[in-house]
C-alpha cells in the first residue's frame, strides 16, 4: 500500500506529501482529564510557513490540544508528527510559549536568566555559559523590545512584559515551529504590537507559527490560517475560506451572538 492510499484509507483526504512536509500533523488525538474528553479524535495538518490561530469557545480544548501536540500532556490516543518525523526526535525544531499565568513570578531569576533557559538544549548539562550565549539572549530580548529589562528581577515585570520575555526565550531556541498559548491574553497594546511584529517577522523567515487565540476581531489581521475547535475539530484552512459565520456558529453555538459574528464582517462562506 502506498502512503497516499494509507492516508485516504484512514479517511483523510490529505495528500501524503503534504502530510510528510507539514510542520505539525496530528492524527486521531484524544486527551481526557478523568473520563471526559477535553479534545476528541482531532486531526490537524498545519501548513508550512503559515500563521495559524486555534480558536474556539472557553473549555473547547484549545490549550489542551497545543499541550498534547507538544507532549506536555500525555494523550489517551493519537499520533503527532513534526516535519514528517515523530515528535521526540524533533524537539530542537519546536519552541513553546506557555501561558504566563502558569508560573510563579517570584522565582529568583532575572529577565536574562529566563531567556538563557531557551539555550538549554545548546548548553546541556556541562557546557559553560559564555559571553556569546549572553549576547544571543540579549539579541532575543532586543527583538521583543525588552533589552533594557535584562537585569530586572522577573517579579517586577508587568503582564505584557512577562509575555514578551517568554517569547524571547522561545526565540533563543532558533526553532522552525513556534507554538504559543494565548500570547495576547491580558497584555497591553504596546506588547500586542511587539508580539505580532515578531511573529510576522518569523513568518517572513519561513517559520511556522501556531497560536491559541481568543480575540476573533484580530484573526483576519494577524493570521492566514485558522483551526476551529470545540472538543472536536470544526474546521481548518485558510482564513479567507474557513473563518466564516457558518463555521463560527458551529464552533461557538449559542455562545456567540449573531450580532457579534456580523460585526466581524465575514463572507457567507
Amino acid at each position: 500500500m502506498t502512503q497516499l492510499e494509507l492516508a485516504t484509507d484512514r479517511g483523510h483526504i490529505v495528500a501524503a506529501e503534504t502530510l510528510a512536509a507539514s510542520p505539525l500533523a496530528i492524527r486521531g488525538l484524544t486527551v481526557s482529564y478523568g473520563e471526559k474528553p477535553a479534545v476528541f479524535s482531532i486531526d490537524a495538518t498545519v501548513q508550512d510557513g503559515s500563521m495559524t490561530a486555534i480558536i474556539g469557545p472557553n473549555g473547547a480544548g484549545k490549550s489542551t490540544l497545543l499541550k498534547a501536540a507538544l507532549g506536555v500532556i500525555k494523550p489517551l490516543s493519537g499520533t503527532v508528527s513534526v516535519y514528517g518525523a515523530p515528535l521526540e526526535g524533533q524537539r530542537a525544531r519546536i519552541a513553546y510559549v506557555p501561558q504566563r499565568a502558569s508560573i510563579d513570578w517570584d522565582f529568583p531569576a532575572r529577565v536574562i536568566d529566563v531567556v538563557l533557559m531557551g539555550l538549554y538544549r545548546e548548553l546541556g548539562l556541562l557546557r559553560r555559559l559564555t559571553g556569546g550565549h549572553r549576547q544571543k539572549a540579549l539579541e532575543c530580548l532586543q527583538r521583543v523590545g525588552m533589552a533594557d529589562f535584562a537585569e530586572r528581577q522577573i517579579g517586577q515585570l508587568s503582564g505584557g512584559q512577562q509575555q514578551r520575555v517568554f517569547l524571547a526565550r522561545a526565540l533563543a531556541q532558533d526553532a522552525d515551529l513556534y507554538l504559543l498559548d494565548e500570547p495576547f491574553a491580558g497584555v497591553d497594546a504596546a506588547t500586542e504590537k511587539a508580539i505580532i511584529d515578531v511573529l510576522k517577522a518569523l513568518k517572513a523567515q519561513g517559520k511556522t507559527v501556531v497560536a491559541v487565540h481568543h480575540d476573533l476581531a484580530t484573526i483576519t489581521e494577524y493570521f492566514d490560517h485558522v483551526f476551529l475547535i470545540n472538543v472536536r475539530k470544526v474546521a481548518e484552512g485558510p482564513v479567507a475560506t474557513t473563518f466564516t459565520a457558518e463555521n463560527l456558529q458551529k464552533a461557538y453555538g449559542g455562545r456567540l451572538a449573531t450580532a457579534q459574528i456580523e460585526e466581524l464582517e465575514l463572507g457567507a462562506g
Binding site: 499541550k67 507538544l70 507532549g71 506536555v72 521526540e88 524537539r91 519546536i94 519552541a95 513553546y96 506557555p98 502558569s102 508560573i103 510563579d104 522565582f107 531569576a109 529566563v114 533557559m117 538549554y120 538544549r121 548548553l123 548539562l125 556541562l126 526565550r169 531556541q173 507554538l179
Partner: peptide
C-alpha cells in the same frame, strides 16, 4: 551537574517538558 535541569523544572515544568 543537574542544576540547570532542576532549576528549569522548578521554574516552568511544562516548558521543560516541551524542550525534552
Amino acid at each position: 551537574l543537574l542544576r540547570r535541569a532542576m532549576t528549569l523544572v522548578a521554574f516552568d515544568p511544562q516548558y521543560a517538558r516541551s524542550i525534552g
